[in-house]
Amino acid sequence: MKTMTTGRRRMRGAPWLAWAVVALVLLWAVAPGAFTGHDPIAGVPADKLRPPGAEHLFGTDAVGRDVFARVVHGSVHSLSGALVAVAVGLVAGTLLGLLAGAADGVADAAVMRLVDVLLSVPGLLLALTVIILLGPGTVNVAIAVGAGSVAAFARLARAEVVRVRRADYVEAAFGSGGRFPAVLWRHILPNSLGPVVALAALQFGAAILAISTLGFLGYGAEPPTPEWGLLIAEGRNYLATSWWLTTLPGAVVVAVVLAAGRISRSIGKDRP
């Protein structure tokens, strides 16, 4: 109670900066040509390893490709991968959670034990297992990352449904003669989805992180695709001389993930 209130108030403001970052990166993915005139794949050998400047915002790499152009063109891989990952986790996890929360008893216990099992294996190891199974590749990586977030969605969805189901207003809705589907649709779902949407935003950022990690380890897209993780991995060989090859693409990843987290928190707070 003490001293906290003012701090919270300050955090309240609309996260316009975060939305702006996400919007910019979305635009990069949709229309990369509007942001850079350089080719992300074909380099100009004469221009290799130039530090950042007016001509090359993020500098150039060892074969003379513009790093900024590669980051802009690479956004589509990270974003679409993250979307697929979140979709997998959201759909599978929320359905599992709803099932568990709505049908207590044996089904609930069974689903929650399954979630325990999923939680017991760290996300990256689960993703690597899926990659052994499906092989490397952008889509496979996305599915692998999504599989890792199923447990989190399932847990949250179940907790929300259980919380809302106990609410007086749900009992009052049954008391007003409501049938289960109507009460579920009118009262339980709208009141339990907010935190799930917030988690989806958070997982979007986490998925971008995980995808770039797997890309860095070499399980994502094949070179010369400008995937963000791969980009940073390629820059590792020039650490001593060309800092920009790794630092600047990484900073873009951090910015996007931070923005997703910030948006998630603002959604989580927006409760009536």
Binding site: Y169, E171, A172, G175, S176, G177, R179, P272
Partner: peptide
């Protein structure tokens, strides 16, 4: 279900018994 047309309950906490989104 028609029982509920005949008998109604008013809860203790009026805030909790009204759906905050409606």
């Amino acid at each position: 279900r028609d029982f509920r047309r005949h008998v109604q309950l008013v809860h203790q906490n009026p805030y909790g018994s009204l759906d905050p989104r409606q």
